[in-house]
């Protein structure tokens, strides 16, 4: 008799736990406010990444098409994956001296692991991470980018650095 009682008790307790679980799930079913998914392409306009989000590397340029990169090559050295290549050339400045200047700042997005060492170690804050996150392209050559815009020169104030 005792065994039978235990058997029935066991069934009752089991069903109770099952109903508890079902209450949780059906509770969510009947509360559409709890839905957390976002409709991605539609919310592009309102979707804002955090300030520090490491999208892809970018070299900010002023309106006069100047940047602050001196071409020192620290970012190239500090990068663990070799995703940055810096080409420099000798160019005359206003005083007529030949000075080493940045020619192209090549950035391989395909190799970048977004560790942030380049941005942190840049002495002249020439490169930053932007907020873009849609990196998909159809041609992988597009993943290799030149960061300095054509014809851009070193910002004057930053020359002393």
């Amino acid at each position: 008799m005792n065994g039978l009682l235990n058997y029935l008790k066991e069934i009752g307790a089991g069903i109770k736990t099952l109903l508890t679980g079902m209450r949780v799930t059906s509770g969510y079913f009947f509360s559409p406010k709890e839905i957390v998914t976002q409709k991605y392409p539609e919310n592009r306009d309102t979707l804002k990444m955090f300030d520090r989000f490491k999208g892809e590397l970018e070299m900010p340029h002023t309106a006069e098409n100047t940047h602050t990169c001196t071409g020192c090559g620290i970012c190239e050295n500090v990068c663990p994956n070799g995703s940055i290549q810096i080409l420099t050339h000798k160019k005359e400045n206003e005083e007529g001296k030949l000075v080493k200047q940045l020619h192209t700042h090549i950035y391989h997005l395909s190799m970048c692991t977004f560790c942030g060492l380049c941005v942190k170690n840049c002495p002249s804050d020439a490169i930053v991470f932007n907020q873009s996150f849609e990196h998909a392209v159809f041609d992988r050559q597009k993943l290799t980018k030149v960061l300095n815009k054509p014809g851009s020169i070193l910002k004057k104030e930053a020359k002393g650095l």
Partner: peptide, 14 residues
């Protein structure tokens, strides 16, 4: 989200 706001990435923070 907390990680992303502070570290800039969600999974591999460095």
């Amino acid at each position: 989200d907390i990680f992303e706001e502070t570290c800039g990435s969600r999974l591999l923070h460095s």
